[in-house]
């Protein structure tokens, strides 16, 4: 059963073709990385998937239903979670309040009170001690982790992560990869990841989609992508046969 599917997504801004006919299929529990040079349309693609940006043409399906016209908050409640490239926490609220926002709206039958749900997520991610603190007083790495907690409190079935490792040190990246792997295993949460940290991409992703100027130039396993001539050209210019991306 396909969990998330984008069919022929095209986005035009005035005369700019931001995305051209992009397809993507994500199975439950799968991990897919979307890579490409800056301005390739990666974030726009995530915005189309979450409904923040309507596509010019093309469709988005979630769990077999067409959600192309569905409002963002409804998609989130169905189970599409997304984080931003530049953390966008509610900076004038406490850590717990930040996480509670999603815990409340995505509450399903059988869930406890939002406050308890939020606390549980914070405990699992090792942030329980900071629950009452203002978000502004946390370190950068912790803030990124709060963002992760916040999106997890909404019980996503697919997580769309926009450069989650940006600005994290190698130890924190390690932690992040472990926690994401655990999520995939325990709850078969699928992960779609935009990332420039190729170490993380190659280790974490089962499949990679490469965008350049809004079009798919390659799709395949990490091994296939590393020796794909079109990818090498896009990243390094003509004349390379293999690169240690």
């Amino acid at each position: 059963m396909k969990l998330l599917q984008a069919c022929g997504v095209t986005k035009v801004y005035g005369g700019l073709q931001a995305l051209t006919d992009v397809d993507l299929t994500v199975m439950p529990g799968e991990s897919v990385a979307v890579i490409g040079p800056n301005g390739a349309g990666k974030s726009t693609f995530l915005n189309v998937l979450t409904g923040l940006t309507p596509p010019t043409t093309g469709r988005v399906l979630f769990d077999g239903t067409d959600v192309t016209k569905l409002a963002t908050h409804k998609r989130v409640r169905l189970g599409i979670g997304r984080t931003f490239q530049h953390g966008r926490l509610f900076s004038r609220m406490s850590v717990l309040e930040n996480v509670m926002t999603a815990a409340e709206t995505c509450r399903r039958g059988g869930d406890g009170a939002p406050r308890e749900t939020a606390m549980r997520v914070l405990e699992r991610m090792g942030l329980a001690a900071q629950a009452a603190e203002a978000v502004g007083s946390l370190s950068y790495g912790q803030r990124r982790m709060v963002e992760m907690c916040r999106v997890l409190a909404g019980k996503p079935r697919v997580l769309l992560l926009d450069e989650p490792a940006a600005g994290l040190n190698s130890g924190e990246v390690e932690q992040l990869v472990e926690r994401l792997a655990a999520l995939r295993e325990e709850h078969s949460v699928a992960v779609v990841l935009i990332e420039h940290n190729m170490g993380m991409v190659m280790r974490f992703a089962e499949r990679i989609l490469v965008l350049n100027f809004g079009s798919t130039i390659a799709e395949g396993t990490p091994e296939e992508i590393q020796s794909d001539p079109a990818v090498l050209t896009a990243y390094l210019g003509e004349g390379y046969s293999h690169a240690d991306l």
């Binding site: 963002t72 908050h73 989130v76 926490l89 509610f90 004038r92 609220m93 309040e97 709206t105 995505c106």
Partner: peptide
């Protein structure tokens, strides 16, 4: 809490399902 979230960042609030 939702109202405060909306006041601070509408897009992020949408992504919290608000």
């Amino acid at each position: 809490i939702g109202m405060r979230a909306v006041a601070q960042d509408m897009r992020a609030a949408r992504l919290m399902g608000l």
